[in-house]
Design a protein around this nucleic acid. Structure first.
Length: 420
DNA sequence: TCTGGATGTCATAGC
DNA sequence: GCGCTATGACATCCA
């Protein structure tokens, strides 16, 4: 066992050399690197946490990202149920219209007005959205507080007297997406109070408030300016008559042309209940209304079809909205994963470089120490016969090579350039 | 005329 | 069994 000769003049030089190595900023950089790496890992863990949170909250489909948060802000006053089974809080019937399920035709003006400020017929809350609300809570105030049936959720009541001036424009412009509630059909021998007695005409915009507009780089109005009013010929239509072209350049001839197909059918069969009521009344009330009239089989069949189609129409709209949202959420997740992958690559690259640098430092130190060691006779030790081992406290031990590997399997081999 | 997006409708499954 | 919702598939309209 030979110890470092601290008393020699050479060691003074060595001290300087060692201190230069040991105090090298690279070592500090190493610490920094490690800290940074750990920080990065914490960040990754954090991301994982968020990701897991979002996944668990949205049936594995929704990532919580800033974009999602922003989208959430635009769509959290839900009107439609989530993918799950939870029910969306409700507003009173006075606050929600139950229309919107029919081809809402409204003028462009009306649409713009409604779209921007009134109607959010496609809003719905996923569980993840609710989760997000819990985090951001920016929109919770707009969330209806009580569970609500879905057929009561689509569209808010919009009284025409809110925009009398707009109403004045109605005759001049083709109707688009304007749904006139309380379509009343004059039924002989029916009391006025029962049929078509609603005074305030209400409009429903079948708008699509996609919170995705920003993502899709699309004018929010572009995709809803179709006039999906079904114009039927004289009537007596079959069960499935094709929608007729709705050229808005053609002058409007009569109100009837802008009735939906089902409205025209209902009118043709003298159905005494408005299409809106047929679609949106709760089952009990709906049956109660039906019981008031002596309806033929054809009328009952049509009413059932109207109700089914009306509900399914809304369901389809929500389904599509939901699908788009899922696509955007997945796109966010993909982006997040790509970013994470890049961060990991960078961290790994940095670690490899640091490892290599430290190896070089160690070899340098090893060589320096070994060359300055002397036996009792003042001769250098042969690197082929001895090797140095470093202990945990930083001290060096000279160990015979043949024994070193036997006695201590972890003994470090001399560097390759040790033979110099 | 073609094309893609939007929307309505039907069929079906599941609750 | 009924009513409702969700969703794929198809049809139609429209820019």
């Amino acid at each position: 066992m030979v110890y470092y000769q601290n008393g020699t003049s050479e060691m003074n030089q060595t001290d300087g050399f060692l201190s230069s190595i040991l105090n090298d900023e690279d070592l500090q950089l190493m610490d920094m690197a490690m800290n940074e790496g750990m920080y990065t890992m914490r960040m990754l863990d954090s991301n994982n946490a968020i990701s897991n949170l979002s996944i668990s909250g949205a049936a594995g489909a929704t990532a919580v990202s800033r974009n999602d948060m922003e989208r959430m802000d635009t769509s959290s006053d839900s009107a439609v149920s989530s993918m799950g089974s939870e029910r969306v809080p409700s507003l009173s019937d006075g606050e929600w219209c139950d229309g919107g399920s029919d081809s809402g035709h409204t003028t462009g003006e009306h649409y713009v007005t409604d779209y921007q400020s009134k109607i959010r017929p496609y809003d719905y809350s996923y569980s993840s959205r609710q989760l997000n609300n819990g985090i951001g809570n920016s929109d919770s105030a707009r969330m209806p507080p009580v569970a609500q049936k879905k057929h009561q959720m689509y569209g808010k009541r919009y009284f025409q007297d809110q925009s009398a001036s707009n109403a004045a424009h109605l005759p001049q412009t083709p109707l688009k997406y304007e749904y006139r509630d309380s379509t009343s059909y004059p039924i002989p021998n029916q009391p006025e109070s029962v049929v078509g007695s609603r005074v305030p005409e209400m409009k429903y915009s079948c708008s699509v408030e996609f919170g995705l507009q920003n993502h899709l780089s699309r004018n929010s109005i572009d995709h809803i300016q179709h006039n999906h009013t079904y114009h039927l010929p004289a009537e007596s239509s079959g069960a499935m008559q094709r929608p007729v072209s709705r050229d808005k350049s053609k002058p409007r001839k009569s109100e009837e042309e802008h009735l939906t197909r089902d409205e025209k059918r209902a009118r043709a069969l003298n159905v005494p209940i408005s299409v809106d009521d047929i679609i949106n009344l709760p089952m009990d009330e709906f049956n109660e209304r039906l019981s008031k009239y002596d309806l033929s089989e054809a009328q009952l069949s049509l009413i059932r079809d109207i109700r089914r189609r009306g509900k399914n129409k809304v369901a389809a709209q929500n389904c599509r909205k939901r699908k788009l949202d899922q696509i955007l959420s997945l796109a966010d997740e993909v982006k997040e994963m790509r970013d994470r992958k890049q961060r990991l690559i960078n961290d790994h690259e940095f670690s490899v470089n640091e490892c290599k640098r430290m190896k070089d430092k160690y070899q340098q130190l090893y060589r320096h120490v070994f060359q300055n060691l002397r036996d009792p006779d003042g001769n250098q030790y042969s690197p082929y016969q001895y090797s140095l081992q470093t202990s945990a406290d930083g001290s060096f031990l000279m160990v015979p090579r043949s024994n070193s590997t036997l006695s201590n399997p972890e003994a470090k081999e001399p560097p390759q350039n040790h033979k110099e």
